[in-house]
Simulated assay, not measured.
Amino acid sequence: MGNLRHLDLSNAAFCRLIPQQLGNLSGLHYLDLGGISGNAPSWFWNWSSNINMIDLSENQIKGDVPDTLLNSVVLNLRFQGRLPRLSTNVKVFNIANNSFFGPISTFLCNKLNRKNDLEGPYPLD
């Protein structure tokens, strides 16, 4: 299943938890998961850092992102928990309608010293 490049499960009523089978998709470039609730499995954030575009905007995901450096070019996230760390590869970071807590990363706030190329807005469709 490594040849699948685009996966859109945004309207998949059967998919309420992050499917374990996603971990087998090594060549994925775009992932849209809608309607997910609960905690993301421990493997998910490391695995998803290799995907270029991730849309998790229509979810009820809870819990902290582990100390993982999110590396996707486009991140559209919605969940409750601690603000994740972002790599300098991130170009679009949409965190509208979230319940983040904890310190705001210098990646977002310290404009003079940050080493990133955030852009936006960027369509995810």
Rank of each mutant, 00 (worst) to 15 (best):
Q60V: 12
G23L: 08
Y30N: 15
F14I: 02
N52M: 14
L112H: 02
N116Q: 10
D125R: 12
K115S: 10
Q21I: 12
S37T: 15
P103E: 15
A96N: 07
L70P: 11
L56P: 05
L108T: 00
F79L: 13
S99M: 02
N89G: 01
R114V: 11
L4C: 02
A12W: 08
S10T: 01
L17S: 15
P121D: 13
R5G: 09
N11V: 03
R114F: 02
R114C: 09
F101G: 02
P123M: 01
A13N: 04
Y30L: 14
T88H: 09
N46H: 12
T68L: 08
G38M: 09
R5T: 14
P66F: 05
V74I: 12
G38R: 07
L69K: 08
Q60K: 13
K115L: 08
L108E: 00
L86R: 05
S72H: 03
S72F: 01
G23T: 02
G38V: 12
N110F: 00
G38D: 09
L17Y: 08
G2P: 06
T68D: 08
S87Q: 11
F101Q: 09
I51W: 04
F101V: 00
G38I: 11
I104F: 07
V74Q: 01
P121E: 12
G38K: 11
I104A: 10
I104T: 13
I18G: 08
F107P: 02
N24H: 13
V90G: 09
T106G: 00
S42Y: 09
N50E: 06
I18E: 06
C15I: 15
G27D: 08
S42N: 11
H29K: 15
T88Y: 07
L108V: 03
G63T: 10
M1W: 10
I61S: 05
N89I: 00
L31W: 05
S87L: 06
L69F: 01
I104R: 05
P123R: 04
N89D: 04
P103C: 12
N3K: 15
G35V: 04
L31A: 11
C109F: 00
V90Q: 11
F14A: 14
V74A: 01
I18W: 03
F44E: 01
T68M: 10
W45A: 07
S99T: 02
S99F: 03
L83K: 06
L112M: 03
S42P: 11
N116T: 12
K115F: 05
S57Y: 07
R85S: 07
S87T: 12
D125K: 13
N98A: 05
S49P: 03
N11I: 04
G81P: 06
P123D: 13
K91T: 01
L69R: 06
S99E: 05
I36T: 05
S26C: 08
S72D: 03
S10E: 02
Y30K: 15
L108Y: 00
W45Y: 15
K91S: 01
N3T: 15
